[in-house]
């Protein structure tokens, strides 16, 4: 636990007083954000499609077809978009971070960094955390947009739902709060996933086996942490938006 606090303090110090470089952050945004787009887009699209299909099958029994896209839109914005994008990113990015930093740790590359007048937090950890925290909300927005579009395509062009009423219901029921909730969740999830990936990588031991364990631990821990944090964020953000 003390190591976790030490890393949190180290990251905070590095953010304000550290010797980090913008070029490292931009490079990480490319690696994390740009190269995660395909998996996030595919996940968002199929989530939207299956949600619209299932909702339609049930709503159709009660003649509520035109509410189908509204349900998809709200669910994608505030829950499914951010959570599924985060789970995909924790599998792709979190695991990669743990593996990369873990390999560097066991092959003395991190010690080498330290002897080359470079603080590992400044060079390895902070750019990854900042980049993921920036990239994640963008990825969430993409997942939401693609999920809604894919659902709209399925609902209107294949299932034959009335587009005008569906669109009107979707716009009426989906509030800006739903979108903001998704974006805020994305920020927290990005920070959480990258922190877990970096922590597991830096605390890696026992050679190749240790790297494997760190990678697996990262995916499991980050996935569970995302699901748990999502619950608490849902409660907190709903309270905040209710007051506002």
């Amino acid at each position: 636990m003390s190591q976790i606090w030490e890393l949190i303090v180290g990251v905070c110090y590095s953010l304000f007083r550290g010797d980090w470089k913008m070029s490292d952050i931009v490079n990480q945004i490319y690696l994390i954000g740009v190269r995660s787009q395909l998996v996030v887009i595919v996940t968002g699209a199929f989530t939207g499609l299956v949600l619209v299909a299932q909702t339609y099958f049930q709503f159709h029994k009660f003649g509520m077809d035109t509410m189908t896209l509204a349900v998809n839109s709200v669910a994608m914005c505030s829950e499914l978009g951010p959570v599924l994008a985060a789970l995909m990113v924790s599998g792709r990015v979190g695991a990669a971070m743990a593996a990369e930093l873990g390999t560097m740790k066991v092959s003395e590359q991190i010690d080498a960094l330290r002897t080359l007048n470079t603080h590992p937090v400044d060079y390895l950890v902070l750019p990854r955390i900042v980049a993921t925290t920036i990239a994640m909300p963008v990825l969430v927005c993409e997942a939401i947009a693609v999920g809604i579009l894919a659902g709209y395509f399925l609902g209107v062009y294949i299932l034959g739902i009335d587009p005008v009423y569906s669109w009107a219901n979707m716009v009426n029921i989906t509030s800006v709060d739903n979108v903001i909730t998704g974006v805020i969740k994305g920020i927290f999830f990005g920070c959480l996933i990258s922190f877990i990936g970096c922590y597991k990588g830096l605390s890696c031991k026992n050679g190749a086996q240790g790297v494997g364990e760190a990678t697996t631990d990262t995916v499991v821990s980050a996935s569970i942490a995302v699901l748990m944090l999502n619950f608490f964020l849902t409660l907190i953000l709903s309270k905040i938006f209710a007051v506002l």
Partner: peptide, 17 residues
């Protein structure tokens, strides 16, 4: 880090990035 500016280390396995 400031002290290490005066130092250099060649590691056993080279530890190249």
């Amino acid at each position: 880090l400031k002290i290490r500016r005066e130092m250099a280390v060649m590691f056993q396995g080279a530890a190249l990035f």
